[in-house]
Each structure stands twice: as structure tokens, then as C-alpha cells.
Computed example of a mutant assay.
Amino acid sequence: MARTRTALFSVLALLAGLLSLQLGGPAPRATAAPAAFTHPGVLVSRAQLDYARSKVQAGQQPWKAAYDDMMGSSYASLSRTPQPRAVVECGSSSNPNHGCTEERQDAIAAYTDALAWYFTRDSRYAKKSIEIMDAWSATITDHTNSNAPLQSGWSGATWPRAAEIIKYTYDGGWPGAGRFATMLRDVYLPEVINGAATKNGNWELVMTEAAIGIAVFLEDRSAYDKAVSTYLDRVPAYVYLTSDGDLPKPPADSSIDTEAEIIKYWQGQSTFADGLAQETCRDFGHTGWGIASIADIAETSRIQGQDLYPKIQDRLRYALGFHTAYENGTAVPSWLCGGSVKKGLDQVTEVGYNALHNRLGISMSNTQKYTEAHRPSGTDNYFNAWTTLTHAENPS
């Protein structure tokens, strides 16, 4: 009787699994969100900030030079006036550009001022960060046109970094924090949480970075879990490893699955090597954005106590090494992108290099050479900002 009941339960479980597949796809992964969120905890933790601050106060390099660059930038200006819009309209290549540049740069300024507050303890910077965030949360209602998800990703990846530092380290108070949270939940999260499976991978990666940062600030476990699931599917579809087989993995939940479709999606590249990215043969600039988001998301997960680096470290390591080798002068072989690549990786290596080389002890000579030659990192005016200051050789 017991054996019969066990068999019946097995059949029922199988039927339930098949029904689940019919209704909603595969069962979700185990929860990724922490039992309790850590704050500040988007890209930078309090311990990381304290470490970097101590280095600046001691006048040590490269942190002091990075700090001076940040404080001397227009983003740290106390006379900055935010330029919010109710509707930010961004078309392909930001054409039209109705508020796109202003939104991204105001988000970076809010983050810059939040960092300036933490490093100086000058409340004027905290108040300026709050002023910028309050201006946007009182105004914006929507993003429109074809680049709306990407624009929401760029800005949405940056706003929570600023908000986390201000809300959890500034004792002067932030009455508008609730309205800012509502803005993130209602205006940004719906644009980014469902990903962009068929777009170039840097889209979905920065959208996912925004979703995870927003989830931390909102303490939204469901959004955090969904974003992590998207991330763990997208990273293998963005960076190739020979263990994947003859072809890269296709993007999850997309119609890109035949050999011809995958090669077309990989910019016509038909020969694959460890570290090659889906956008390598497009250009290194967009590829760098994708690599940056891979590292940023893993960094946030580590702060939150659910470390994703072990799951993606080989892909991140090889991606960094592959692209920095050519940036450093390695000759481009004929099999790669027709023998010519468009360089311009930019200052996107600091977070990943610190995590893999300095914390985990992985040898990364090409990435080390490139990273040290491009210090101090500034900002790309999209979503990367001041990572030499916050992450260079930071063990915390």
C-alpha cells in the first residue's frame, strides 16, 4: 500500500510539473533575496565606503586622485540645478533626446553628491543629492519611445546607489524618501523587470542591474529574485566559454535558437573563444557596458549576502582578459570580427578586477595592466561612475 501511494504521489508530482511548464514555463530558481537586506547595499557597502574614505584621508593613491577628480567634476557642483521632466522620451541612439541626457546626468550627480557627503561629512552635499532626487520624484511619470527600457536601465541603475547612501548614512533626514521609492516602483521597475531577451545583451544586463538595485532599496524580495533569475540566464548568453559547446547559449525566452540566428545575433561571428561576448564584433564600448553590469550585479549580490560571483566568475574573468588584451595592443587575429575590432572598452574593469584578482586571487595580467593604466576612472555619463574611488583594491 505504501509503495502504491508513493507511486501515485510521483505521478501527481510529474503531472503538476508538466502543468507548470504549460502554464508558466520552468519552475523558478530557489530564492536569491537575502532574509534581511543590507543597507547601504547597492554596488557599495558601508565597509567599502569607509575603506575608501580612510585611503583618501591618508592621501594615498589611487584613491586621492580619484576623489579629487570626482570633487572637481561638474557632477559635484553645489550650484547644479536639476532638470526633471514628466515624460523622458528617448529614441534609438537617443534621437529624439527629450530629457535623456539630463536624467542620466542628474542621477549621476545625485550619486556623486551622496559619495561627496560620505567622504566629507559636509551636509551640503547630502542636501544637494536629496534636492536632485526630490526634483525627479516630484515630476517624472513615464519613459517613452524605443529606448525607454534602456534609458530606464541606465538611470535606474544609478538612482538607488545615491538613495541607499543618503537614506542610511545621512542623519539630517530625507522626508521625500517615500515618494522617491514610489517613483522607482511605479516609473522605473516596470520598464526593466521583464528584461529584453532579443536586444543586444548590454540592454538586458543594465536593466537587470537597475532592477536589482531598485529591489534592494524597496526591499522587494520578489523583484530581486526575478532579476537574479534573468541575470543567471543572460550572463551565459552574453559571454562564451568553450564548455558551452560549438555555439554560444541562446538568450532565454527568445526565438533566437538556430545556428544561423545565433551567429547573426553575435554580429556575424562564427568562431568562438573563451571570453568572446555577444557584442564584441559590434564594438568594445557596448561590450564594456555589458561587462560592467555583470560585475556590478555580482557586487551588489555579494553585499546582500547571496554572492553570485562563484556562478559567473569564469565568464567575467575571461571576458575582461579577452577584451583588455586587445586594448593593450595584442594583434587581432583574422578569425575575430573579420580581423578588425572597434576598441574603446572605457573604464569598466575596476569592480570586476577587484573582485576577482584582489579578493579571489585570480591572476589577470591583461586586466591589471589595462585597469591600472586607466586610473582614476571617472564617469561615462551613462551609469558608470567613480569606481576607482569606491572599488580599487577594496577588500571589504
Results as ranks from 00 to 15, higher is better:
Gln278Val: 09
Leu247Phe: 09
Ser229Gln: 15
Ser229Pro: 02
Tyr309Leu: 14
Gln313Val: 11
Ala260Asn: 04
Lys199Arg: 15
Gly290Asp: 13
Ile297Arg: 00
Asp253Cys: 04
Gly213Gln: 00
Ile212Thr: 03
Pro248Tyr: 07
Ala197Ser: 14
Asp257His: 11
Thr258Ser: 14
Gly285Thr: 08
Thr271Ser: 15
Asp296Lys: 15
Ala223Ile: 01
Gly275Met: 11
Thr287Gln: 14
Arg317His: 15
Trp203Gln: 05
Asp307Tyr: 00
Ser293Trp: 05
Gly245Ser: 13
Asp244Arg: 09
Glu209Asn: 13
Ile212Gly: 03
Arg302Asp: 07
Ile263Asn: 07
Phe272Val: 00
Thr287Lys: 12
Trp266Asn: 07
Asn200Ser: 15
Gln269Thr: 11
Leu241Ala: 09
Gly268Thr: 02
Ala196Ile: 02
Leu247Val: 02
Arg221Gly: 14
Gln313Ile: 12
Glu204His: 05
Phe272Pro: 01
Ser254Trp: 08
Thr198Ser: 14
Arg234Ala: 06
Arg282His: 15
Gly275Gln: 11
Ser254Gln: 08
Ala215Arg: 02
Tyr238Arg: 03
Ala196Trp: 03
Gln278Ser: 13
Tyr238Trp: 06
Ala215Leu: 09
Ile297Cys: 06
Gly201Pro: 06
Glu261Lys: 13
Leu316Pro: 10
Ile263Ala: 07
Ala277Glu: 12
Pro310Gln: 05
Leu232Asp: 14
Thr208Val: 15
Gly275Glu: 09
Asp307Pro: 05
Val216Arg: 04
Val235Tyr: 04
Thr198Arg: 12
Ala292Cys: 11
Cys281Leu: 08
Glu204Tyr: 02
Ala298Asp: 05
Ala196Leu: 07
Ala260Asp: 09
Gly245Ala: 14
Ile263Thr: 08
